[in-house]
Structures are given as C-alpha cells and as structure tokens.
Amino acid sequence: MNIAITTFILAVFLLPGLLFRRFYYTEEFSKQYYRNNFFELFFSTLIPSIIFHIIWYYFIKIFNYHVNLLIIGDLLVSENIPNVFQNINKYASQIFLYNISLFGFSCLVGFFGKKIIRFFIFDRKYKMFRFKNSWHYLFSGEFFDFPRASFDITDKVDEIELFYVDFITDTSEGTIIYEGFLVDYELTPYGKLDYIIVKDVERHFLKEDLPIVDNYKIPGHVLIVPFQSIININLTFYKLDIEINQEREIVIEPILIE
C-alpha cells in the first residue's frame, strides 16, 4: 500500500464533506465550521462525504457513466501501480468531471441547505437543525421562537428594531453597571462570546440606588467589552414608533417589545 496515494485518495474522498460544511456554516454560524479536534472534524466531514459519494455514484448512472470501484481498490492495495495509473489516465477526463461536479454539488447543497433552514426557520422550530451559536439566537431575539422558550412576545421577532443592554463588571473600585445599544458581537473560534460592542454607553456604580441622578457618559464611538469581564447581561428589546407630525417632523418613540 502506498501511503501517499492513500492519503491523497482520502483527501479527495473527504473533500465533498468539507465543502458542504464550508458552505453550510457561513456568516453568523461560520465558527461552527471549525472543530475542537481532528477526530471531530474527521467524522463531521466523513459522514456527509459518504452520503454525497453514494448520491453521485447512482446519479451519474443516469448519464450512462459508472464509477469503477476496482480502480480505487487497486490504487489502495495493488502492487502494480503503473497499470492502475494507465487505467486512470484512460478515464482522466471522466474522473475529473465526476469530482468537479460532485464538489460543486456539495457546495450547492451546503449553501442552499442553510438558506432553506434559515428561511423556513426550521432552526428555531426544531432543535436538530439549530446552529451552535446560542448568542446569535439570544442577541437577535430569535430564541423567542424556540418551542421551549417559556415566554412569548406578542410582537413578531422581526419587529425588534433595537437592542439595549445593561451589563455588570467588577473592578477594584466596585461593581459597575454599563448600559447602551448593542451594535455587534464577536465569537471565539469555539463559539463562545468573545466581546460585545456597545454604543452610547453610560455607567454607574451598582451601590448607587435608583433613581440614578448622574450616569457617567463614556465618550467615544463604541465601547468594546471582553466577555470575560462581564458578570451578567440584561437585554431589552425595543421597536420604534415613528410618526410624522403635522409640521412634518419625524418624531421617534422607542417602545418596549411586548
């Protein structure tokens, strides 16, 4: 058995699964593409690869082609490698076309698979389709649509227009509450919250009882807060009631989502 050839075949064999995962876990869920260890990565790639190869094995028969499994077997175990390569050379264009079309198919299935699941909100309705980015579901308010969510909002999730956060951090001077608009967040490669980005931030010490007379307004455009420094987060969802009055002025009222 030639180790180099075996490794190459294995890589080509696993490529459809890798491509599927690359196109399925994109944007908010791209971190899920990365796995903690090689073993996890191998199996999460192997299973879709096997499925894609089985589908393509039967699909190309419609076009009167077939995969000669003997050649692959020979490549893996045969001592007579030149003979095998002669065979491959003979069908090189078909082998190339088979693999390219299979890779393209895997990409499309990954891309459209995610689109369908997100568009029909299957990931919110059924746990088996849910992506492992719980922070996305929390920060977008999509968790309200989870069947397990214990409280519902009468407004639709799409009605949420604004996220206001309060969070507590501990310093040597005391516990501080910050508040402001949540504008973005970032995850670590392992799907944990890395930091949040907050705008129009004010802060005050927790020991100060309400009503708070003077919050300290933090200057600057945005405040980036590493998640390790946050003890807890309070999320408030708002929609905007926008009215054009008789003077044709735009009057804005933020209203709590109900």
């Binding site: 997100r118 568009f119 920060f139 977008s140 799409d158 973005d184």
Partner: peptide
C-alpha cells in the same frame, strides 16, 4: 437570511 441586530431605520 441573516437578521441584522438593528433595523434599517
């Protein structure tokens, strides 16, 4: 289908 955190307005 990636819902942004804030609405356009």
């Amino acid at each position: 289908n990636e819902m942004p955190l804030t609405s356009k307005r």
